[in-house]
Amino acid sequence: MELRAVIVEDEKHSRESLKNLLEEFCLNIEIVGLAESVEEAVSTIAQLKPDVVFLDIELQTGTGFDVINRLNNIQFDVIFTTAFDQYAIKAVKFSSLDYLLKPIDLEELQNAVEKARKKKNQDVYKKQLETLMLNLKQRKPTLNKICLATSDGFEFIEVNNILYCKAEGSYTKFILKNKETILVSKHLKEYENLLFEQDFMRVHNSFLINLKEVKKYIKSDGGYIIMNNNDSVSISRSKKEDFIKVMSALMDT
């Protein structure tokens, strides 16, 4: 299946570099349009109806998200590009959407193209984009919803509904307030980085907890935490002091 692609990038060098990488190293992809501003991107995409859009997040005339906001009935995949691993990229990760950091790694580019080549459930994809736009509207650095990729598809979860996350080998199990559990094929470290600014803390190699859902801390038996659902969570000796400090600060806010 040949993919028709549009590149939205305001720097000529980056635009041409990505075009050359795609044409030389990615099979069955045709660059049908180039754009360097929000206005030009909206017009080009609406006119050409590509299969995939490589969308720079930071444009001189606005952002890639402005482009998404102004398009109706999105029927293409979006692969975001950026030179900065920043708040916007965290929002993209929360939505389980693809992104590429500049300078673009060839293997990551090829992987992103192949994922775009596989037909997605368009309704689910629209939900991912909606989740992204919702999170971007919130006051930084708060992110309200997270998209979890499971073996069955995607789950869209309110962050404040997560009690804690538990490492299950190379997988992560999410334990939610409604007693549901979700198993995701990503390492706990991935979610530690994503949820750090959402009042989550890695208190043990196996546990990442929502600090707002802590019921009590028990000092005996080496110390452990009781969550609001009465589950017991282990805490590492090296984490106890930081945990107490963070909880004290959280209570004062």
Rank of each mutant, 00 (worst) to 15 (best):
I235P: 00
K189V: 13
E39T: 08
E16N: 14
I7M: 05
S95H: 02
I218N: 06
Q47G: 15
N230R: 12
K245I: 07
S43V: 15
D10G: 04
N69K: 13
F94E: 01
A167M: 11
K173C: 10
N161Y: 08
S37L: 08
S14W: 12
Q128F: 08
A116Q: 03
I244R: 10
A116G: 06
L101S: 07
E190V: 15
E213V: 00
T142N: 10
S151H: 11
V184S: 02
V159Y: 05
I29P: 01
V113T: 04
E58Y: 12
N135L: 07
V42D: 06
N230C: 12
S170W: 15
T150P: 07
S232W: 13
R139N: 13
E190W: 15
I29Q: 04
Y191D: 00
A149P: 07
T82K: 06
L134R: 06
V38R: 00
I209E: 00
I162W: 02
E158K: 14
K216N: 14
E24R: 14
T253C: 09
K173M: 10
P50E: 03
A91T: 02
R202F: 05
V67K: 02
N28K: 09
K219W: 10
I68V: 11
L132F: 05
S95Q: 02
I157W: 03
S185Q: 07
D56H: 13
R15L: 12
S37F: 02
V8M: 06
A35P: 04
A249V: 10
K115H: 08
L48P: 02
I45N: 00
N205M: 15
P50S: 01
I157G: 05
D231I: 09
A41F: 01
Y191V: 01
G33Q: 04
Y171M: 09
L59D: 00
L129Q: 08
L48F: 12
I157F: 08
E114P: 04
E213P: 03
L134A: 10
R15Y: 03
K137V: 09
D98N: 11
L21Y: 14
I89N: 05
E158L: 12
A41G: 07
L101H: 04
S234W: 15
L134S: 09
I209M: 03
K177R: 11
N69V: 14
G33N: 07
H13G: 12
F65G: 00
L71E: 03
Y164I: 03
P141D: 04
Q138C: 14
S234C: 15
L132W: 01
V8Y: 03
V32E: 07
F156H: 02
S170N: 14
E108W: 08
D252E: 09
G223N: 05
H204E: 07
F76C: 02
M247I: 09
I235L: 11
A88F: 06
A249E: 09
H204V: 05
K166I: 04
C165W: 00
S236I: 09
E39C: 10
Q128L: 06
E192D: 15
K166G: 03
I45C: 00
K216Y: 12
N20E: 11
I209Y: 04
N210D: 08
C165N: 00
E114D: 13
K212M: 14
S220M: 10
F25N: 09
E197Y: 12
N228R: 03
N229K: 06
D242C: 10
L176F: 07
Y99F: 12
D66V: 11
P141R: 07
S185C: 12
F65M: 03
M1S: 08
R139H: 11
C165I: 01
F243W: 04
G222E: 08
